[in-house]
Computed example of a mutant assay.
Amino acid sequence: MIVRKKLEVIDLYKSGFFYIEGCFYNDFLYSGAIDYGQVICDWSKDPAPEIGSMQISSMEDTSFLDLTLRLGQPYVNMHQGDCEYLIVFSDIRMLCPQDTQGIREYPFVTNKRLKNQTKCMLLGGWCTTVYNSEHAPEDPRFFCEQWMAYNSERALEDPSFFCKQCFRALHYNQHGNKTGNFQAFRFFDSNSVI
């Protein structure tokens, strides 16, 4: 009898990073991890974007104490191929005697607003990450919506919300041409901020 290991998302997409204050902190914990930030850093060196220089560092070599943060500034965490999260540090204060004194306890999450996220209307938020692939995971991965469509002939609600994969599959043909007369906009759900 052959026992096959269940394919996990981490088996396919081992890479990840945090982007904080102009630096990509890459996760190289797993062998085969890709430096996602290198392509963007190379692009930023072109004078046309005028966004300034960017740096690359290893997440494993960086401590939270090494970071310079701005309160209220959104930063990016990306992992598992294209799963993106915005992270916002909203408060900072001096340690007092009533607080946990162990330095390894910090930072800690004070609020997660993931329960009320707007979900993809096509598959209710459970969308596969790899379409038409022999490597598609058995359990589809949760995706936040990224697109909002108005006047879509293929949607039950107006406006309607879709993850990237479902939006493309429903509103564009195999050649990438728009099908139907609708308006679409990138959508940011503030409830997806950690």
Rank of each mutant, 00 (worst) to 15 (best):
151 N>A: 05
148 M>D: 00
160 S>M: 06
63 S>V: 01
10 I>L: 09
177 N>T: 09
191 N>I: 08
173 N>Y: 09
191 N>C: 12
57 S>Q: 11
121 M>I: 14
143 F>A: 07
70 R>Y: 12
103 I>H: 06
70 R>G: 06
122 L>N: 15
16 G>Q: 03
174 Q>P: 00
14 K>G: 07
106 Y>T: 02
30 Y>C: 09
161 F>V: 03
59 M>N: 05
160 S>P: 06
32 G>W: 07
129 T>A: 05
121 M>V: 15
70 R>K: 15
140 P>I: 04
57 S>A: 15
6 K>M: 07
11 D>W: 04
152 S>W: 04
31 S>H: 11
82 D>Q: 10
96 C>S: 08
193 V>N: 02
65 L>K: 11
51 I>E: 02
131 Y>K: 05
140 P>N: 05
50 E>W: 02
93 R>S: 12
10 I>H: 06
3 V>A: 13
65 L>H: 07
57 S>Y: 01
65 L>C: 12
50 E>V: 10
37 G>D: 08
33 A>N: 04
122 L>E: 14
126 W>G: 00
63 S>Y: 09
76 V>R: 09
120 C>L: 10
14 K>A: 09
98 Q>D: 11
173 N>H: 08
46 D>K: 08
66 D>V: 04
52 G>L: 05
49 P>K: 01
58 S>M: 04
192 S>L: 05
11 D>L: 07
66 D>K: 03
131 Y>L: 09
92 I>W: 01
51 I>K: 04
194 I>Q: 01
134 E>R: 09
24 F>A: 01
153 E>M: 12
149 A>D: 01
18 F>S: 01
104 R>T: 10
128 T>H: 15
22 G>M: 03
156 L>R: 06
119 K>E: 13
114 L>N: 13
146 Q>T: 15
36 Y>Q: 03
137 P>A: 02
60 E>D: 10
123 L>D: 15
96 C>V: 14
189 D>G: 05
71 L>P: 09
128 T>A: 08
99 D>L: 05
84 E>Y: 15
96 C>W: 01
113 R>K: 11
178 K>F: 00
166 C>F: 02
28 F>I: 02
189 D>R: 07
36 Y>N: 03
